[in-house]
Each structure stands twice: as C-alpha cells, then as structure tokens.
Design a protein around this nucleic acid. Sequence first.
DNA 1: ATTAAAACA
Length: 993
Amino acid sequence: YVITASYFWSNRDGSRERWDRGGGGGRGSMRGHSSDYDHDGGADGGQRDRPPPHLRGREIGLWYARYGAVRRKQADRRSVWVMYGRKQRSSQISEVGKHIVNTKNSSKLYHYILTVYLSMLLCLFSYSQAKDEPPDMWDEDEQEEDKEKLRIPDKDAEFLLQEIVRDRSLDDYLKSDLESKKSDMKYKEMLELVELINSNRVLVVSGETGCGKTTQVTQFILDDYINRGVGSTCRIVCTQPRRISAISVAERVAAERAESVGNGNSCGYQIRLQSRLPRRQGSVLYCTTGIILQWLRSDPLLSSISHLVLDEIHERNLQSDVLLIIVKDLLHMRDDLKVILMSATLNAEKFSQYFDNCPMIHIPGLTFPVKEFFLEDVVEMTRYQPQNRDRRSSWKRGFWQGHNSRPEKEVKEAEYREMWPCFARTLEGRYSHTTIEALEKLDNDDKIDLELIMALIHHIVREDEEGAILVFLPGWDNISSLNDLLMAQPMFRSDRFVIFPLHSLMPTVNQTQVFKKPPPGVRKIIIATNIAETSITIDDVVYVIDGGKIKETNFDTHNNISTMAAEWVSLANAKQRKGRAGRVRPGKCYHLYNNLRASLLDDYQLPEIMRTPLEELCLQIKILKLGSIARFLEKALDPPTEKAVNLSIKNLTDLNALDHAENLTALGIHLARLPVEPHIGKLILFGALLGCLDPVLTIAASLSFKDPFFIPLGKEKMADMKRKVLSRNSKSDHLTIVNAFQGWEDAKQRGARYEREYCWDNFLSANTLQMLHNMKGQFAEHLMHAGFVSSKDPKDPKSNVNSDNDKLIKAVIVAGLYPKVAMIRPCHSKKRVKVYTQADGKVCIHPKSVNSEETEFNYTWLIYHLKMRTTSIFLYDCTEVSPFSLLFFGGDITIQRDEDQETIAVDQWIVFRSPARIAHLVKSLKKELDSLLEEKIRNPAPVDWQNRQSKDCAVITAIIDLITTQENYFPRSILQRSYGEKGSYIRALKLFY
DNA sequence: ATTAAAACA
C-alpha cells in the first residue's frame, strides 16, 4: 500500500528571511511596494508568509486575505498531480480521499492513495528550509542585517513610530484567522499521518529535499504523544548522514519550538565528540548514523527508544545500509519500536519492499521550478562548435576503461553507441544541422568540454537575469582548468564577477564569502565538485551547469585494489544538482549530456556497501554479535559480492583479528572497539605499547579522518614546498603531519593570533587540526578503558617515553600498516625512483607525498596506507622504513640459503642478506617480542618503563635500541638483486653488511 | 607517463 499525502506548509521561511535582508536584488520587501501586493511572488518569489513591514492596519488584513487565496490556488494546482515513482510516472488524484492507483507491478500491488491537504500548516508551523551551511555563516548574516538596518533608517522608523489605533476589522480578521487555524480540517488530517505511524511499525516517508520531512515528521510524532498525555513515553531518534545537518536540523527544530538546542529541552543533537542532549523523555534527538551503531554495543535492542527515524536513506551510505539490516532484525525482537524511513522519491518503493511492503506516504516538495536543458539545447542556444582534439585522450580512455569501469558501465556504453544513430535522426528538424554535427563531435570525446562551459556561462551572463551560477565538475583538475580559462578573460577578472572554486581540499570551503549574496550587478560563479550537491548549500544559485560526471571510488575485487574514476552521474545526482538552482526563485539547469545519455543514466550510484572494503564493517558485525558475516551481509538491501566479503574476512584473519572459525581474537576485540579501521587500530595499540602515544595518535587520527593540509588553487607547488619543509627530511608523510600538528599546538599555546598565523603560513586547516586533537582524546580514552595506558591524556609523560624517537615511530607505523609495503628501486638514468609492491608491480608515489620527488632514500622500503588506482596506481601517503622495523614488526620470518647467500625474509618477499647466525638471533628476538605483545593484548597493562628489570621492558628496550641505532652497526642497505616472477615483479632485496 | 569525491564513530 502506498499512501500519498500532500502537505502545503510554507517551506520557504529561510528564503523569506534572506529576502527581507537582501534589499539588493529582486523582490525584496524593503524595496517592493505594489509588487508585494499582486503577488505571484507570494508563491514563487520573495515574501512568503508574512506581510511586508511597510503595510499598516487594514492593509495587513487585506494582505493576509489575498495571500491566503493565492496560496490555496497554488495548493490546489499542485495537488492535482502528485509525481510518483521512477521515471516520473504520475498518479492522478482527483479528490481528497482514498483511490486505488495502478502502478508498475500492477498484478501484485495496488496502492491506496490518500491525499492529505495541509495547506494551513504554514500558519501552525513556521518551517524553513534545512540548510547545510557551517554555523559561522549565521554570524555573518547577522552582521549583514545590522548593516541593512543602518542603510534604511527611515523604513524602520516608519514601522516603529507609527500610531497604533484600534482597527476592528483587523481584530475580526485576526480572531477568525486564529480560529480557522485551530479547527481547520487540514490540521486534523495532519494527525492522520501520525495515526499512520501509530498504526504501523514501519513507514516509508518519501519526499524531495525541501519538503520539510526532516523537521516536521519528528515534531508531529512528539506533539501527538504530548497531546495524548503520554509525552514521557516518547523518545525519538533521527539519524542524519552528515554532522552538519544533524546540528542544523536540531537548531531549526528547536527554534520552531521556541527553545534552545539541548539543555534538557525537547530537541538536541549528538555527533562524534560533540553533543547537546535533550531531556531523556519526550524529546527528539538528531544524531549521525554512526552514533546509533555505537549505541547498539551497549544496548542491542535500543530499548529506550520509541521511534527510530532514518533520514536520507536514499543516499545509500554504508552506515545507513547496515543500520537497515539491523533494524529489520530488531523489529522481530521489539514489537513496540516504530521505524520511519525517510527517502527521496526516486527509490522509496525499494525500501518499502525491503520492509515487507510497508506503507508509504509521499510528501511533495515545494522548491521552485527549475527548467532543464540538455546538451543539444545548450549547443543550439550557444551555437557552440567544438574544437578538434588530438586523439591521445581517446586512446588513453580506451586503455584505462577496461581497468577502471564496472562491466555494467561498458554494457551501457555499447548500448549508447548502438542507439546513437537512431537518436541523431530524432534530432533532425528539431535542431539545426550545425548542432547535430557538433553533438557528434562532442560525443567522441570523453572529457568534459570546458570551452562549452565557457560558452554557456557567456550565454547566461549575456541573456539571462542576475543570479549565481554553479558549475559541477568531477575534480580538481577540471576546476582548476575552468578557473584558469575564466581568469584568462578580462571580463571575468573585472569586479562584475566573483569566482569561487569549491573543493574539499581548498580553503574556500571555510569561507563565508562563498555563501554571501554578492552586491547588485556582481555575478557569483561557483565551480564545485559534488561537495555542492549535499554538503555545501549556496542559496542564491539560480543557474546550475551539470558537467554530467562524478568521481566514484570502486573496489576492484579482481585486482584487489581501490579505484577512482570519473563516471556519468546518476539520475539522483542530476536531480539533486538541478534542485540546487531552485532555492530562492525559479532557476535553470543545464546538463552537459544529451537526452539519449540522460535516458541511459542509472537511477542511483552503486550503494557504498558494494564499493568499499569491508574489513571494519566485518569487525563491527562481530562485536555486535550479529552472527556469521556472510549471512548478515546477505540480508542487505543490496548485498556486497561474496568475493568482497571473503576477501575482507581473509584480510582480517591475516591480521590476526579473526580466527579461522571467524571469531574475534583478543586483538580483534580491541580493534573492533576502536572507532577506526583495523590497521589504524593496530597502529594505535602499538603506539601505546611502545611509549610513543601522542605522535602515533596524531597519525592515526589523520589517516582515519583526513590530513590537515589545505591546497589553495594555483598554489599547489607552494603547498608542496610547505609540506616538504615540515617533513624535516623525515621522508615520511606521516611524520610531516606529526610535525605540523606539534607546530600548531605550540602556536596555539602562544595565542589565537599565532595559531591563525601558523595555519595560514603552512596551509593548514585549524578546523581539521582541532578535530584531530579531539579524536586523539577519544582514542586515548579507549586505550585507558582497555587498560593499555594509565591516563586518558594523549600527552601523559608515562605514555610518551619514546615519543621523540622518530625511528621508533616509523617502526610503529610498520606494525600498524603492515603488509602495505612497497619497495624502492633507485633509477639512475631518470630523476625519480621506481616503486613496486608485491601484488601490483610498479606503482607511483603520489605527487602530493613529500616523497614523490625524493631521490635520496636511506632505505629501500616504504610503508603506506592509501593506495588507489586512478590514472596509475598511486601510494597517497608513505614513510620510508628500515629493515629492522620490517623484521620485527612485519610478518613471519624465514631463514634460508638462497643461491649461496644466507638470507632472512619477511613473508617470503622482503628478503635481506644476512648470516644465519644473525638471522637466527633476529628471529628469536622477534619471537620474544611476539609472545610479549600477545600477552599484552590478552592482559592489557601499561608498560612499566621505570623497572628495567621487568621482562617487558628488557625485550622492548632491546628492540627499540636495535631499531634506533642500527645504522651505527650496519652500513646502508643496498639493493642487490631482483627478479621477476609471474605477476609480481620484484621478489628479493638484500641487506648487505 | 605528475595529482586530489564525499562522509562517519
């Protein structure tokens, strides 16, 4: 059963506030007079639900009357057709009530459509559009408001100083208005939604962003409980995919309820390391999905929760998919739990089917209409002629496509090629010949045509009204090129334009400037990645240029490697991008792909659970005691492949986190408890055991979150240089971060001014550094609870006796990240060294790494964390490590004679030449260390560094001494010989001494 | 054969 309701509450409160302040452009209340009266803008534009401030007395009443009529007309018009289901199939609803509508699977499924009109809700709930901006922008806005007031003192004075005389007609109007709201049928119908929730255990609520489901549904439930006098039994938790949205939604809801967030009020939020909790009973909590997954560890039934609302599940994040599996099982154990799933319209049905065809209710969004154009329209209107390109790009595409794309994509591509001639014929007559020719040319190029985007921007600037332009591109490269192209033209350099590149690595993501509406006559152009699809919302965008591509990571199980490549967007992406143009007024969206391509786009991107390594998830499944990993994951909405699951289990077994019966080992339990992936967890444990906690936690935090460096556009080389300086010749990206972090701590201690200066000078993000700092605290707390350290302070001296020992820190990185090892082979003919891994053969050090141009290494081995295939296989971060660190903290040691050489090898492939006598000594010392570490893992206790007699201390200090001083005993390791074998290039390297 | 998508405990 599908139940469809239409709500007509004002969803544009946010835009109203903006217009009030805007003054500059469009139909602002400050400047509009008559225009506020004859109000098509009342529905589509400026003022939404309050009369303009310059109206007086009776005029206000008249305004309300008129405005109400316009709203109702709008509501009627919109309610006639409710878009429903995939591919814009629509179901007609002729009247309020229940109708049976036939949908796709007509033989199986009939849908009840219940329409609920709630147009008057706008009076009861002041709702405004959820925004995802960082909170700091609000401060800016308040300043704006102040300025605005100063600028137009007479208007304010007029409002303030007017004489108040009793106006009986207004009195009557106000009274009847209030009563009609109270008794309105439509308000009662709102209660039907609540009843639907009360009478079903699972409900799918579908609606586009901007329909208000996130802020309203939770409040409906809560208020219903309170009204029925059972408010104390209601405890609603609503999950959000992003930290910022959890906070901003909680703030909005609190504001609607005239309360502050948290403080034991009715609404609060909780995200990692930050919370403002509401009262325990009769409240709504917004939290990130990960929070719930953590709760499950202490309360597998979530027994105190009455309603679980999962928002934005259509995004198909790893965590929300996992929570869905758990919730589905949880319903068998908790018959009093209510689950509300909130999704975009496009695939809401799928969630309903997953929960045994649970009821669905649809809430139409009320964003402004956005006119869509496709490539053929864009070419026609710009009369664009593509340049002939050299053929190298298509050769390269062909070369990598087989490697980087999923097979389904290739099938789609073939289908596209096959249908192209037919499609081209349908264009004839409707489009000019030059356009069709241009389309054919464009079609043979896989790259996004930035010249075309330039032409389109020119066209918009020339022909269209004012309003910001947002361009979606897949990555840095494109953003940078388009920025250069624009900046090459004097027109765009003039003060009539402001251009913001937007990318997670660029400092612009933190600038409030980006969100501000520019002064009149100035056009804002934003060139962004998909960061502007969901994470960053810029309200005044009116024109969206959708480049049509998006970078997607994937996991290639065949070659066992993560990949990233630009792919065609999904329909969901395209829809989301389009929606970005309709936030303040009707907008336009230009898709840079043709209609044939559009018809072949996937509905959605592949769910994350099918694209990512699953090790961490497997540990979570085990610690939550959810049974067999494979059987659990089979229950997913879209299960990962068996191969991917088995690979993860194998990796965990190799890591000694799981035994062969798939049970958590002692190590596995510790790793599962730490909120990081298993390799990072191991890194953290070793940092604690070897007395270099603080720097190692910095590395762990950075690897599991992100590194704190910004890269300003156009200053890439400068940023590289700054990192190189901070590396202090450590030949390590990881120690570079430690140095940067310590520098920040020192600067911060000297004062806020110095902190700012330090971050600015070194291209560092203070926000990220602060987050890393907080995460370190969380890790240390875990370690203390587990018993590995005696203090929850990462900087406690007892945990940091060896923290100044860089060689030891590098060895700890080996202990954590092994077996992610690469071999360096100096290349004398060329500038750069060559790097190999066992499984991939030749790889490259990513140019961002401080080691990318390094030629003088002390050792021939690197340890890395992130390896990904893009145009080549890159190691994104790496640290040079010594043979002893590999011998002691790497895998199994074998000693053998190999072609008249006595050798010692780690896991058979990291081979060093060494006399058998020394090799056996190393092996037995390693054995001591292993048993000591195993004992420590079984019975965690801080190492007693004071008592040199204790066995712990003796073994560990011996090894630390060896690692620290080995150069004094052994000359530099030298590559002696290497030979290739099937699949793996290099097998042997020998330590010469 | 020189590069960077997003997000979370």
